[in-house]
Design a protein around this nucleic acid. Structure first.
Lengths: 211, 211, 211, 211
DNA sequence: GATGAATGAGTGTTCATTCAT
DNA sequence: AATGAATGAACACTCATTCAT
């Protein structure tokens, strides 16, 4: 079971699939091409993967899980800190930066996979992955916004507040997408990260002062 | 040629295509379905449209052109105003708001078409349309940044400056995308637009003060 | 529309399909083979037929409809005659023979098609066609049996009566199946039909005298 | 070899195969499914069974052999009795009933297997098993017919006689098939058996009197 | 202007079977 | 006695596109 031969086959298949998905996107990718490139028959592919979507998952699933776990870790950590928050207190940006740095590192550790996930997943079960993450962060941001504005209850948020917070959550995610797709290396991305943060923080204050 | 009959055929084809593209996206859309729904044969479709991509262009091309023309108008207008700018002078936000309002109106006038363009164009020649527009706007943002920072020459912009400005251009576009895909009516979108602007302006100041 | 060329294509396709279904049965029949034999591409087949089952229907549907119509005609005719039936009255065997003769003629007019329907339809939507017909005849036979036994109401039929009548309906159908699959020509089948009738009638009396 | 472990594997395989064949029929049954359900690899299956058909034989072969042996026993027994027959002598129905009862008991002892054999064997080497048995019985029926008619020699049978006798042999078999597929228990089947016999006997007389 | 027919390469997927270990 | 891996041909079906009429 799982000997070196089969492991090698799976690896070749995944490498070939990564290339094909990356070049053509999920829908236009051809399993036949992937197999041919991997020097393997279609039957072999179907021994290791349930179907096309499962192969896609084989390529991007691991990195995505790593990212999700990391996100979840930071979000629950921040939630705990919020308990001791008092209005007017300064937001702990260093923690946020540290979390963002970690995320960027994960993204660039699997740059190709995340690029596929972001721009080539249409047609697969992962096609809404970014929106899903943004929605996850939205909930998190509602809590942050609520504390900073001094609200007593989430129910006091206006429709406009909710809209802008939802936007900010999406935008936060888009920053990472932008970093991934416009920087060549992790190093470069981390360098830009600070500027991005200034923008986001500025945006927050713009919103808070205005509402 | 160009009589009422043929015009009607084209119209039915476009309506049917709009529906199909909207439901399935460019790639999964079937020309057979589109023709069947329009009560027309495939041959007829190919009389009026060169190929699948041309049909897609038939659906979204008009609205997109209208938007582009409007954008171009405002950008050249602002460029002329810039000649009389002096460093430190307040940015004319009212003009920007007016331009944004116009853009939103165009987006909602052809809501369906723009939604297709934004979320269903993968596989067509329009799949990068948002990035293209963002790149167009990038130039505009460089000018704004330059004025606000009091630079004497664009050449003095650092690599980091360029990156953040590029991001801001993208983000500006994303705001319109967000407005289009999260608001039901033009009225609702225009109401949210002000909050979005606060966010963006805040972001600018965050960047300016920090660099 | 429906010109000579296309008609010829359909005809070739149907002939080829009939051959393939007849040799291999529905499930093992290969659409590729059928098309190759017909000198046509698979795409052409799918222009005329929705799917494999539809092609099968194209081969056997017509003859089956003809048979069903004929059966229905005779069954409603017999039902009308039953209104004037009094217990002890002799059954009109000549009418039955005439009806059976007609059925045999239809079966042999489309001998190949009915053989396919009977022995090669497994996997298609026609796989239960014989049972369906037998069930149709069952209802008919319940009425016949009811009159001959002098029942006042169908509800007085015992479970055993119902069982044996159901069997007789099936057996009636099996006679035609046997005739079709064991006689080479219509002429031969019609010659044997009389003997089969004696058997069936004898069976009825055996049941009636015994219950 | 032949130890408890391997016996258990075979048993699990056969149970799983029985289920799959019963649900999907021979052709649509998947060896992969059968192995998965049995918790065994395909290689193991192929160690015990030559191929798909051999596995099918493993499921239905035993019961079928038992039935065939029983049929042969009765047929040779009756053949011996026939030597003491004189024309006009009453047919020994009690012996026939006893034989039929035994057959029904065997059928219901292996109800599932015989149902598979009868309705799910298409595509396997057993697909003509019913016709084969009917043909076996044909010989027996020729003798019965010959006695009842008072023929001196089988060679005096006309073509029509042979045909009707062949039909009666088939019909006799169909009775058992009907009993198996329409009765839930052996008890119920035995109860119906008497009525079926009346039908058959009546049929015989109908034929004899008419020819 | 538009039809109906046809192309042919392509799709993802399943299958019974084999075999080195 | 049994495994896990691999084969390779086959499957039904869909597609955008073409073209004589």
């Amino acid at each position: 079971m799982g000997n070196d031969n089969s492991r090698e086959t799976v690896e070749k298949l995944l490498a070939s699939a990564k290339k094909e998905f990356s070049e053509k996107g999920y829908m236009k990718a051809s399993l036949r091409n992937i197999c041919k490139e991997a020097g393997v028959t279609t039957g072999a592919l179907y021994f290791f993967f349930k179907d096309k979507d499962d192969l896609f998952k084989g390529v991007v699933g691991g990195p995505l899980l790593e990212l999700r776990n990391n996100l979840a870790k930071h979000m629950s950590a921040e939630l705990e800190e919020l308990d001791s928050y008092t209005p007017g207190m300064k937001v702990n940006l260093e923690d946020d930066m540290a979390a963002a740095t970690e995320a960027v590192k994960i993204l660039f550790k699997h740059k190709e996979e995340f690029e596929i996930l972001i721009t080539k997943a249409q047609g697969s079960s992962f096609e809404n992955v970014i929106d899903d993450i943004a929605d996850m962060m939205n909930k998190h941001y509602i809590d942050m916004f609520w504390n900073m504005k001094g609200y007593k209850s989430k129910k006091q948020m206006t429709k406009e507040d909710k809209f802008i917070v939802h936007w900010m959550a999406h935008d936060q995610v888009d920053i990472f997408v932008h970093l991934l797709t416009h920087c060549k290396t992790e190093k470069e991305a981390l360098k830009q990260l600070k500027g991005m943060f200034s923008y986001i923080i500025g945006g927050w204050f713009g919103v808070i002062n205005n509402t």
